[in-house]
């Protein structure tokens, strides 16, 4: 499913609109441990996390995820958004918890 459709269905806010939202999302991954994401997040998945610091972007790039969803109403640091813009990684925001937001994605991708 296209990222742009998922953004609409899940009501996500796009924190850095100048990125490619037309890319394909194959799966999701929930983790707040950065090494775990690099080891186990599937390529082209959407990564759900409560981490907001800029190292998230380096990890997203290495793990080749389609985007990062920051959950629980948390706001990314300014440095995170700058690095996301430079690396062209979509950063998406939701007030919902990781469980609820990822659960909705699961339903979308498997329903």
């Amino acid at each position: 499913m296209k990222l742009i459709e998922i953004i609409r269905e899940l009501g996500l806010q796009v924190a850095n609109p100048d990125v490619d939202l037309d890319r394909e999302v194959c799966w999701g991954y929930c983790s707040d441990l950065l090494s775990d994401v690099m080891a186990h997040a599937p390529k082209d998945s959407l990564w759900f996390t409560i981490q907001v610091h800029e190292n998230v972007i380096a990890v997203a790039l290495l793990a080749e995820v389609a985007g990062v969803v920051i959950t629980g109403g948390r706001r990314p640091e300014a440095a995170t958004l700058n690095r996301a813009a430079a690396e062209r990684i979509p950063v998406l925001l939701t007030g919902e918890t990781t469980f609820v937001s990822a659960g909705r994605l699961y339903r979308l991708l498997t329903g």
Binding site: L33, L34, D36, A39
Partner: peptide
């Protein structure tokens, strides 16, 4: 707290 130090770094490199 930043999500580092999970004790997975060296195993990840090995993998």
């Amino acid at each position: 707290e930043m999500g580092f130090g999970a004790g997975m770094g060296l195993p990840n490199i090995k993998r």
